[in-house]
Amino acid sequence: MKRQGGFTLIELVVVIVILGILAVTAAPKFLNLQSDARASSLQGLKGAMAGASGIVYGKAAIDGKETSTTKTVVEDIDTIYGYPMATANGIDKAVVGLSDDWAKVSGALSGAPSDSATYYFKGATAPTVFTTGCFVNYAQATSISSGVSIIVRDDKC
């Protein structure tokens, strides 16, 4: 009689156990995607702020307001040195949807410039955000040559 080729029940169980062990060791690496998504969102916000401030600066330059040392209005956006100010009528208006998706604290970040605003995920509490490190800080221009400063802290999202 010819013997049939195939797998025994024991061999199949061993393969399933090995696959289960591999899944248990690899699963935590793939389950912690939320912090990566938050960090990417913060980087996206930084890019949106940089892009919006560049566009506003271009419009201010066209209007001849890029060297103004006091608050000026460009396209209904408060600017200083041609860049959006860190106010509700400044960067908040320049970045569409900023106030809808992000919470803001003005000057609450220790060590941040006085003319700055810090943005974090809505639903999080401000003290927790600053101690855990998951926010974007926008500091308005302080001179003609300085431009804006956008700092992302995403080390503990």
Rank of each mutant, 00 (worst) to 15 (best):
A86R: 10
M85H: 04
C134G: 09
T67Q: 06
L42R: 09
Y57F: 15
V15R: 02
L109A: 02
K46I: 14
N137Q: 13
A117I: 14
A108S: 08
I62W: 06
S41D: 14
T67Y: 07
D63L: 10
L42A: 11
T8K: 03
S35A: 10
T79R: 08
A26K: 01
K29S: 02
T125W: 11
G51L: 09
R3D: 14
D115M: 08
D63G: 03
A141Q: 03
A88I: 12
T8C: 03
K71A: 08
T128Y: 11
A61Q: 09
R153S: 12
Y119C: 02
D92M: 04
T70A: 10
A26N: 00
V136E: 11
I21C: 10
A124V: 07
V14I: 15
G97K: 05
I144Y: 13
V136N: 09
T70C: 00
V95R: 01
Q34Y: 10
A61T: 09
S116M: 10
A50E: 15
Y81M: 03
A112L: 05
F30V: 07
G47V: 14
G47F: 15
E66V: 03
S41G: 11
G133E: 11
G47T: 15
P127Y: 07
I80E: 06
L9Q: 08
L98E: 06
A103K: 04
A60H: 01
Y120D: 02
E75I: 01
S40D: 13
I151A: 15
A48Y: 09
S68C: 02
T8V: 05
V105L: 06
D155N: 12
M1H: 11
A39D: 10
D154R: 10
T69R: 06
L109E: 07
K104H: 04
L33M: 08
C134Q: 09
I18N: 08
F130V: 09
D63E: 14
A27E: 01
V73I: 07
E66Y: 01
S40Y: 13
G54E: 11
L98Y: 09
C157V: 10
G82R: 05
Y81S: 02
T118H: 05
N137Y: 13
V24L: 12
V14W: 08
M49S: 12
E75R: 01
G44N: 13
C157Y: 07
A124G: 00
F121I: 05
K46W: 14
Q140W: 15
G111Q: 00
S35D: 10
G64V: 05
E66C: 01
G64Y: 07
F30C: 00
A26M: 03
W102C: 04
R3L: 15
A52Y: 12
D78F: 06
G51A: 06
S116F: 08
N32R: 07
A86S: 15
F130P: 00
G6F: 14
G133D: 11
Y120N: 04
M1G: 14
